[in-house]
């Protein structure tokens, strides 16, 4: 009888029952809009499929509780929001971009952002989260203009002791990544507009 109950419990997905399911708010802070100003450019964004489902079960240390970080579901809306704040004319492709579409809508650059890795540096007194992404910038003829990688990290103490602590720490790591990505992208586009790149 006991084994049947245990099998039923574990078979139903014990990992979902036990541990931390960490969903970030998925919103940028007010400082982001204050720090990042728009540049005059018409930029389209394409988000590869599967990004929104990106999650990590990296629990940091062997002794830690199981943790599931739902990164994609927060990253994608925050990425869209960062482009709303970062460029004057922002378009999102919900179909595969083509050179014809780029020409028709007079889009200067196509940007593709992908999550590459996520690391949890949980330690005895706190937690550090690293989000690695790669950004591709394409010309209107869809030839590669530039490719760069970004790391955004957030490290804080006593994260798990606070209500919403791990969630806000994850949000902060994503925002750090997007800050760096957008700043770097803006520099690239300004250089390209000036013809100095």
């Amino acid at each position: 009888m006991m084994s049947v109950v245990l099998l039923a419990v574990f078979g139903a997905g014990c990992a979902a029952l036990f541990g931390w399911n960490i969903h970030a708010p998925g919103l940028l802070s007010e400082e982001f809009a204050q720090d990042i100003s728009k540049i005059p450019a018409r930029v389209a964004l394409y988000i590869p499929e599967g990004q929104i489902d990106y999650l990590s079960k990296d629990k940091g240390t062997a002794l830690s509780d199981p943790q599931t970080y739902y990164i994609g579901e927060a990253y994608v809306p925050m990425l869209i929001e960062s482009f709303q704040h970062g460029v004057d004319e922002f378009l999102l492709f919900e179909t595969l971009p083509t050179t014809e579409l780029m020409k028709r809508y007079a889009i200067s650059y196509l940007v593709v952002c992908e999550i590459k890795d996520f690391k949890n540096r949980k330690h005895y007194r706190g937690q550090g989260l690293d989000l690695y992404t790669e950004t591709f910038v394409f010309n209107p003829d869809l030839s590669l203009y530039a490719r760069f990688e970004t790391r955004g990290a957030s490290e804080a103490w006593k994260v798990f002791a606070k209500k919403g602590g791990p969630e806000v720490n994850l949000n902060h790591a994503i925002e750090s990544n997007l800050r760096s990505m957008m700043t770097y992208l803006q520099d690239l586009l300004i250089q390209a507009q000036k013809g100095t790149a």
Binding site: R125, G126, G128, E134, N139, S143, L144, Y145, A146, R147, F148, E149, T150, R151, G152, A153, S154, E155, A156, W157, K158, H172, S176, N177, R179, S180, M181, T183, Y184, A197
Partner: peptide
């Protein structure tokens, strides 16, 4: 002696250029 402030780190690195 835990530091009060939280840390934000961010960096971007060019991988490939036209």
């Amino acid at each position: 002696e835990i530091p009060d402030d939280y840390v934000r780190e961010q960096e971007s690195r060019l991988l490939e250029m036209q």
